[in-house]
């Protein structure tokens, strides 16, 4: 037969009942681990902030500068500051989720139903994130430009109107499915390879998975920042 770690379950959920709401328990459990790890890192790193950085502060500052540059480049000098925490949280949450899903040996923990993994391998999580991005760019555009925001739909010509409206639906759709598909596919590939050949062979796929995970986090954060930047962009006539 096969090793106990090498089993695969797809579409199995650990259901929690909250009132008359149903939740995917395994997603929340792993997301709490991810959030806990993030908060632990942040709390340890910011315990004593100094002008001459030491230890974890260096890492945190590197992350901060990386996210700042990303947000500034995509959103623009004027408003990137308001959206930096949101973009940064998206990036960190997705990145740590993806890497956590790949690096933490979740299979050692047995659940009655379903299995633990990256929270981003669940469609609920990615749609939640993508909808947050949609809300954010609407809010960013409306709060910055008022109803002039809707001029964006008819620029440069009114012919663009239907396409721009369709874009509002395709943006969250592509954001969520890209992330979900990539992470789930990575987990499946590694799982299948580990199921077939438990030793050595899955390693290249695992490395590729780590690479994909990082790239997906970067893509999601960059696109989110880009959409917000598009919404707050001022046309100069």
């Amino acid at each position: 037969m096969h090793l106990p770690f090498a089993a695969l379950e797809v579409g199995q959920q650990l259901y929690w009942q909250l009132g008359n709401l149903r939740l995917h328990g395994q997603v929340f459990l792993s997301s709490w681990v991810v959030i806990g790890a993030l908060l632990a890192l942040v709390v340890v790193g910011t315990r004593s902030l100094e002008r001459d950085p030491r230890g974890v502060q260096n890492l945190l500052e590197f992350i901060w500068v990386y996210i700042r540059d990303l947000a500034r480049e995509q959103i623009g000098e004027k408003v990137y500051r308001d959206w930096l925490p949101f973009i940064g949280t998206l990036f960190l949450f997705i990145f740590v989720s993806n890497w956590g899903g790949a690096l933490i040996p979740w299979k050692l923990i047995h659940l009655p139903h379903g299995e633990l993994g990256a929270p981003t391998a669940d469609i609920n999580t990615t749609i939640a994130l993508a909808l947050l991005v949609s809300l954010s760019y609407f809010y960013a555009g409306l709060s910055r430009k008022g109803f002039r925001y809707f001029e964006y739909y008819v620029e440069p010509t009114p012919i663009m109107l239907p396409f721009k409206i369709i874009e509002d639906f395709t943006k969250p759709l592509s954001l969520s499915f890209r992330l979900f598909g990539n992470i789930l596919a990575d987990e499946l590939v590694v799982g299948v390879l580990a199921f077939l050949v438990p030793l050595i062979v899955p390693l290249p796929a695992m490395f590729l998975g780590l690479f994909t995970s990082a790239i997906q986090a970067l893509i999601f954060a960059t696109l989110a920042a880009n959409y917000i930047g598009e919404a707050v962009h001022e046309e100069h006539h």
Binding site: N124, T125, I127
Partner: peptide, 9 residues
Amino acid sequence: DLDATLPLM
């Protein structure tokens, strides 16, 4: 399988 996980997340 979409459910209350989405808004809570």
